[in-house]
């Protein structure tokens, strides 16, 4: 299967997900369970994608772990997304120079 087919499929699915409710639906979802589920989905997805993958994201467990700790601490103190992301990377990079 060519990569182009994969790209087309992922783009089409992503577009339809956004387009259908934006274009056709006007009413609010009534089910409290569904609304709660949809509210929690982003956090569950991001958490499952990040843990444990982040610990091997730089190809080295030690530099990844240092970057992760820095990200967790900065995120805990509500720093902007971009600051947390770049600081984690910088910490990993500097750790890599030391070991």
């Amino acid at each position: 299967m060519t990569v182009a087919v994969y790209i087309f499929v992922m783009a089409a699915v992503t577009y339809i997900i956004r387009m259908v409710p934006f274009t056709f639906f006007r009413k609010k979802i009534k089910s409290r369970f569904v609304r709660s589920f949809l509210k929690y989905i982003p956090y569950a997805v991001l958490s499952a994608m990040t843990i444990p993958a982040i610990f091997t994201s730089t190809g080295n467990v030690v530099t990844s772990a240092v970057g992760t700790v820095v990200a967790v601490v900065l995120a805990f103190f509500d720093l902007p997304l971009i600051v947390v992301a770049l600081a984690a990377s910088l910490a990993s990079f500097l750790t890599g120079l030391l070991i």
Binding site: P42, Y43, L46, S47, M49, T50, A53, I54, S57, T58, G59, N60, T63, S64, G67, T68, A71, V72, L74, A75, F76, D78, L79, P80, L81, I82, V84, A85, L86, A87, A88, S89, L90, S92, F93, G96, L97
Partner: peptide, 22 residues
């Protein structure tokens, strides 16, 4: 060394999204 350290950027952003509300 630089490109491998960049591998953590997106995961760092994800942590920044999920940790404050957690």
């Amino acid at each position: 060394a630089v490109s491998s350290a960049m591998g953590i950027v997106l995961y760092g952003m994800f942590l920044a999204i999920i940790i404050p509300p957690s």
